Simulated scan of single mutants.
Amino acid sequence: MATISLADVKALREQLGTGMVDTKNALVEADGDMEKAVEILRLKGAKGNAKRADRSTSEGLVAATQENGAATLIELACETDFVAKGEKFIALADKVLAASAAAGASTVEEALAAPADGKTVADVINDEAAILGEKIELRRIVRLTGDAFEIYLHKTSKDLPPQVGVVVAYTGSDAETARSIAQHISFADPQYLSRDDVPAEAVEKERAIVTEISKNEGKPEAALPKIVEGRVQAYFKQVALLEQDYAKDNKLSVAKVLADAGITVTGFARFKVGA
Rank of each mutant, 00 (worst) to 15 (best):
S214N: 11
A111I: 05
Q191F: 14
A64P: 07
T72N: 07
E75I: 05
I40V: 14
G19V: 01
S214Y: 11
L92D: 01
L193M: 03
D249T: 08
V28T: 14
V83T: 08
G17N: 00
I74M: 03
A240P: 08
R231S: 11
K88V: 08
Y152V: 08
T18H: 00
G172R: 11
S56W: 10
K44H: 12
D147R: 02
K44P: 09
E134H: 12
E176I: 02
V210M: 09
K36C: 03
D159R: 05
S56A: 15
C78V: 09
R139C: 12
K44V: 06
S56Q: 15
E79I: 05
L138K: 03
E212Q: 15
G218I: 07
Y152R: 00
E128W: 01
K215N: 11
G230D: 09
R143P: 06
G45S: 08
A77L: 10
Q15E: 13
P161V: 04
P161N: 04
A269F: 07
E35A: 12
P199Q: 13
S58P: 05
L252S: 12
E79F: 07
K36R: 14
A175S: 05
A46E: 14
G146N: 04
K158N: 07
G48H: 09
S173R: 13
A2R: 13
L242V: 10
A50Y: 14
K248S: 01
T177F: 00
L97A: 00
L16R: 01
G218K: 05
K47I: 04
L252W: 07
K135T: 15
I213K: 15
V168S: 02
E150D: 06
V198Q: 10
V21S: 04
R52F: 11
Q244E: 02
A63D: 08
A99P: 00
R207A: 12
P161H: 02
D260W: 05
S253N: 06
A234R: 13
E67N: 12
S194A: 13
V142R: 12
A2W: 03
A269N: 10
D245H: 03
S5R: 03
I209F: 14
A259I: 03
E75N: 02
R207N: 10
E229D: 15
E75H: 03
Q66D: 13
T120G: 05
S58L: 12
V254N: 05
V166M: 04
S100W: 02
T72C: 08
Q233W: 10
I40E: 06
G230W: 10
